[in-house]
Design a protein around this nucleic acid. Sequence first.
DNA 1: ACAAAAGTGTTCAGGCTACACCCATGG
DNA 2: CCATGGGTGTAGCCTGAACACTTTTGT
Lengths: 229, 229
Amino acid sequence: MKKKEKKPEFEKYEYSAAAVDLVIFAIINGELNTLLIKMKYKPFQGELALPGGRIRVYESVDECAKREIKEKVGINNIYVEQLYSFGDIKRDPSIRIISISYLALIDNTDNIKLKTTEKYEEICWMPVNKVHKLAYDHNEILKYALSRLKSKLIYTNIVCNLLPKKFSLSEMQRVHEIILDRKLDKRNFRKKVFSLDLIKEAGREEGVPHRPSKLYSFKTKKLMIVEMF
Amino acid sequence: MKKKEKKPEFEKYEYSAAAVDLVIFAIINGELNTLLIKMKYKPFQGELALPGGRIRVYESVDECAKREIKEKVGINNIYVEQLYSFGDIKRDPSIRIISISYLALIDNTDNIKLKTTEKYEEICWMPVNKVHKLAYDHNEILKYALSRLKSKLIYTNIVCNLLPKKFSLSEMQRVHEIILDRKLDKRNFRKKVFSLDLIKEAGREEGVPHRPSKLYSFKTKKLMIVEMF
DNA sequence: ACAAAAGTGTTCAGGCTACACCCATGG
DNA sequence: CCATGGGTGTAGCCTGAACACTTTTGT
């Protein structure tokens, strides 16, 4: 008997499997990076993919995303936001599985130890614009995540989740420029940021071979709608 | 043995059930309405809820949304957009089920025959601001849909999906005012709409006891990002 | 002629853009 | 004293907001 699309009534309502896929962004060496895993088993053996995993019966979808992040990068309390659900039948060639994608942001990767599990061959950061073909429909998910990040950068204070506690305005501007992929005017940037009243002074830089910058921190990291650019 | 949260390892990866819930909006009698069903069986017997249904194994999530719409209102080819996935464990008290919510817009309800199925007691339109307690987490879903509609009204041409083929600018302004729930200035509205170059003339109104308005139609119904207000 | 809704311009204020030089520090 | 990045102000333009009267039709 040849394998084909099954459509018998009795399994019409069969449960769908659901999973979470993560787009975890961080700024590393002046580039926007995302976390990827290298797959160990077929059908995508050796290919890169977004980290993720099946949703368990005793956890909510949000909890699943947070657990997966904890498992992969070992931290809690980072910014996490649901993106979109991808539900094509054959997005996973082996079984029918719906993917609920999440965006997460990490402000500092220095203390992060990436944890390979037995299911993956490798886990690593990769600059977003060096990413080529990913497994499944993960290119589409990554693209979606990036466009969400860009727009939220423009109309919210989400950038606070990509900056350390204390930062200079040049640093902040650099993050914007990296993600939006265009130059911004320094004076206009500063004027705008100050006018939004989101940050407060937090000391000065030290030991740099040039005029030290003032440091700032966000008054709050709560996500707020503010017209930035 | 008392019922409690189960968490045995062997069913850690048990499939989650997934369903689609629909927020179908239409303007009726100068109000924003949404389609609701009255539930026939427990645990929400007699309560109102959003229409929806389980995702079948042989259909994508998007296809499921479209099928459900076809079943309830008998039409295809309307605007449909995925909203958000709601995944709390106990959002359905009986079984664990993830809901992927969709927004749909209907431009004209005159020729629509609502179809009750055996599973529902009733199906009806209800003005959004007369909706009280709904079953499940459906108030939250409705609220999310409304906020998405409001923001897309501001930064896209989505309004074209709530207007008939030919419409006057006053009609269009009325739709904006109904949904945004605030008055707009007539001259500024017209100036803005014309400047966007989205519509073309399409005749005149006839047989009204006052100066007939020019009618317009959209050059395209493709969703476009345009700063409207 | 009247009731009802359609249609039409101008002014003002605030925000966005473009742009170039001096400052503070370490080496 | 030099190299490096930090920090600052202004002028023109464009856009959004406020605002009231005339026009066209049916009755």
